[in-house]
Design a protein around this nucleic acid. Structure first.
Lengths: 235, 235
DNA sequence: CGCCTGAATGGCGGCTGCGGTCATGGCATT
DNA sequence: AATGCCATGACCGCAGCCGCCATTCAGGCG
């Protein structure tokens, strides 16, 4: 559940409400996305003052010149600020303004980094207008909003799985490794037996052992697993 | 047939010009991006008929129901078609319609894959409106347009082989494509038959047809070939 | 030291079932 | 009528699992 992802952070400044958001700043280097967001916000929230900036530097400068907006929507990938850097920078200038991250990338680690850096929420560019508007309203009322599938504990799980997988591959004997390499080149057992000058039956037993070690059932799965950790580059 | 890979592709249909593009189809699952693109096209080209679809399946269905558009703009990452699959599928239905890929990802290999699969061009979501409009106009006049930094010779002759390969994949029927996708996920024939609610025997014949078309003998080779042109990106 | 033992690796053939080919037929579009 | 796509069952070879054997190396023990 996305709700209560981060419970009741004690906001020291006056608690904002969606009604109090009158001026907003969109920081995005995609002109089209910028326009689309601005248009949607104008229509859905009746906002008149939608400012835009195409880079982090431009945003900082604009805030100094024109003052602080009531909310910020920040693209994750800016030409001069990839990742969480944008949040950190803007929060220095605007400690009490909710900053919403928006990105096409839903990778868990990225979301975690953004939230940890102090974002009010993280939304996907793939959201429907309704869901987007709803998410923004909730954020502007103080809620921390993260995408559906996001589970903070899941973060390093992928890396862990990869490390575990690499460990399994490391347990292969030299002969097994040779055979696996040939499998990953699309060779048949008979071809492998010829190349290694052993009987086909022997190849099969090795393959059975390999499968068991890397936890695969079909040889195609073995190929996929090997490729997933780039075991044999090129080929 | 294999020669003359890309350059001077003898388009049998009337050579298109930007003026002749009256109806366009945008395939993108990002509602905001969809709107923004549609709006930009209406303004810049004076187009009235801008159709949209939020998935590859929806696009295919819409084309059958409403007829072929004069041009297509296709997002690289759709919920039901990551990678080059979208181009391949649409080119089956619309062999003479220019298909423009649009993506935030500018990785060279991805661009190569898209172009090899028969895209008319590849543009970044980060482009300014002016550059975007210009790129589209050039594409609709027959030019193959790729992003600035992209250097096709980087791959050299491999590109030709890829184009040929992509053409072979393009000849797969929808059902065959479904089955190939499942093969590339490591599924067994029996599992595939269950997921598609058909007999295992049917799966096998489809696979035989696939193998024949893409010139593979073993199913592992089919997986490798599909991965080599990034047919199904990630699982 | 010699001997046994046990674990690890490489190697073999048989059996079952899946993978891949073939011939065939239904159904739609042309 | 012809073509293309989908579906099916029968047939055959290979893929994958089993039990078994040979060689090597490390250690325990009379």
């Amino acid at each position: 559940m996305t709700a209560a992802a981060i419970q009741a952070r004690p906001v020291p400044s006056p608690r904002p409400t969606a009604d109090q958001v009158r001026e907003i700043l969109i920081v995005d280097d995609h002109p089209l996305m910028c326009d689309a967001l601005a248009l949607t916000l104008k229509i859905s929230f009746g906002l008149k003052n939608v400012r835009t900036a195409r880079s982090l530097a431009a945003a900082v400068e604009q805030i100094r010149a024109q003052g602080a907006p009531d909310a910020v929507i920040l693209d994750l990938n800016l030409p001069d600020a990839r990742g969480a850097e944008g949040i950190v920078t803007l929060r220095r200038q605007l400690p009490d303004v909710p900053i919403t991250m928006i990105s096409a990338d839903l990778e868990g680690a990225m979301i975690s980094a953004a939230m940890a850096a102090g974002a009010q929420g993280y939304i996907s560019k793939s959201l429907s207008r309704e869901a987007l508007v709803d998410s923004l309203r909730r954020m502007w009322e103080g809620e921390h909003v993260t995408p559906e599938g996001y589970c903070p504990e899941l973060d390093g799980a992928e890396d862990q799985a990869r490390a575990e997988l690499a460990r399994r591959f490391a347990s292969l004997t030299p002969q097994q490794m040779k055979i696996l390499r040939l499998i990953c080149k699309g060779k048949a057992n008979k071809e492998i037996s010829y190349e290694l000058s052993i009987a086909e039956a022997t190849v099969k037993t090795h393959i059975t052992a390999i499968m068991s070690k890397i936890n695969a059932r079909r040889r195609t799965q073995a190929v996929l697993l090997a490729n997933s950790i780039r075991l044999f580059e090129a080929g």
